[in-house]
Design a protein around this nucleic acid. Structure first.
Length: 139
DNA sequence: GCCAACGTTGGC
DNA sequence: GCCAACGTTGGC
């Protein structure tokens, strides 16, 4: 299984929105590297949900429930999206500042490539963030 | 609001 | 194929 981190501005689509919807379509990606990461996702892969810009924190974990298919929101070009469902909410969101301050997360793609909206996460990084975030199952 | 990083576009 | 101009993302 692979692990990922996906960013969303909470004003555009938030973790709470995903929990309300139960199932979310992760569309709107218009960056080739991010798109290729979306296409590499397998059903069952887990993704950290990061709130960018206004909050700058990892707030939960979602699971890929449908592998990539064409992004209908794209007027032109060859873009993809996936479907996800919320799995675990972070009782303690892990802020960007906390990630930067954590030596064991120094290599995380979030820091190394700050503009990439869908990036792979190493298993050790994933489990560390999950425990820092005091993740608990979504009802 | 500013700016750094980075991707894309188009002229040459 | 290079590079300047421009647009976008996202942290500060």
């Amino acid at each position: 299984m692979n692990h990922w981190l996906m960013k969303s501005e909470p004003e555009a689509y938030s973790w709470d929105d995903l929990c309300r919807d139960k199932v979310g379509t992760w569309d709107g990606v218009r960056n080739y590297q991010a798109r290729n990461n979306l296409r590499a996702m397998k059903k069952g892969d887990l993704c950290l949900f990061y709130h960018s810009v206004s909050e700058k924190a990892v707030v939960g974990i979602c699971r890929v429930i449908e592998e990539h298919f064409p992004d209908e929101t794209a007027k032109d070009g060859d873009w993809s999206c996936v479907r996800v469902e919320p799995v675990e909410a972070f009782g303690a969101p892990v802020t960007l500042a906390a990630i930067k301050a954590d030596a064991s997360l120094a290599g995380i793609a979030l820091l190394r490539q700050s503009r990439l909206s869908v990036c792979p996460i190493a298993p050790a990084e994933f489990s560390h963030l999950r425990s820092l975030g005091k993740a608990r199952k979504v009802a």
